[in-house]
């Protein structure tokens, strides 16, 4: 009977931490590798995709760009998986990356400005919907996407995903006061739009 899991004589075996999520026993540590193996974030990343796409859409406000951004974000996240601290929020970490990528992409790509924006429905990013309520939903989404830049993203983080102002400010790299004023501004605009819509019906 061996008493403890000793490191194997050399490192040439499958990485123990690779599937820590589903592994029935904690991976043996310490492990004789030069650097800690990067956490395998692939399955978590796949599970995060619907939310990451939604987040990206609020940044790009058009479907094709959103998917390009998600692609780029995932690639970078996998490259940098070793920098991710497993006890921290993977969503916030990838959101920050997506936001930074988008900002630098925007700076680089002022040449593509002529492309124009496509609304979410046209871009095929809206869920297929039935007639009544869902239509209202998509109209509201159009209004959300038509808010000044950055508002939709802030709204998503705080209203929908329940991040605090401080967390949203960190992801977006803006002051907390800006988060607060964007939230108020977005809500006022949407409130006015919905009131108008009701009055118009």
């Amino acid at each position: 009977m061996q008493q403890a899991i000793a490191p194997p004589p050399n490192g040439a075996v499958a990485k123990p931490g690779a599937m820590a999520l589903t592994s029935p026993q904690p991976a043996p540590t310490p492990w004789p590798v030069m650097t800690a193996p990067p956490p395998d974030i692939r399955s978590d990343l796949v599970a995060l995709l619907p939310r990451l796409r939604r987040f990206a859409l609020t940044l790009t406000r058009n479907g094709p760009d959103a998917d390009d951004l998600v692609q780029a974000t995932c690639t970078r996240a996998l490259e940098r998986a070793h920098q991710w601290a497993p006890e921290t929020n993977l969503a916030a970490w990838t959101y920050t990356m997506a936001r930074n990528l988008w900002i630098s992409d925007r700076r680089r790509a002022s040449t593509r400005m002529g492309a124009g924006q496509v609304d979410a429905a046209e871009a095929g990013l809206m869920a297929p919907h039935g007639p009544a309520d869902a239509l209202r939903g998509s109209q509201l989404m159009d209004q959300i996407m038509a808010l000044p830049e950055g508002f939709a993203t802030t709204l998503l983080l705080v209203s929908v995903e329940g991040h605090s102002y401080a967390e949203a400010a960190a992801v977006l790299d803006i002051p907390i006061g800006t988060v607060m004023s964007r939230m108020a501004g977005a809500r006022k605009k949407l409130r006015a739009a919905l009131t108008q819509e009701e009055a118009g019906l």
Binding site: P50, R53, A127, L155, S159, R187
Partner: peptide, 20 residues
């Protein structure tokens, strides 16, 4: 404003149903 909140949350949640 709470009604706006409910509607916008629902609208955002609809986006999650789009197939990846």
């Amino acid at each position: 404003m709470l009604a706006v909140e409910a509607e916008l949350t629902a609208a955002f949640d609809d986006l999650l149903d789009t197939p990846v």
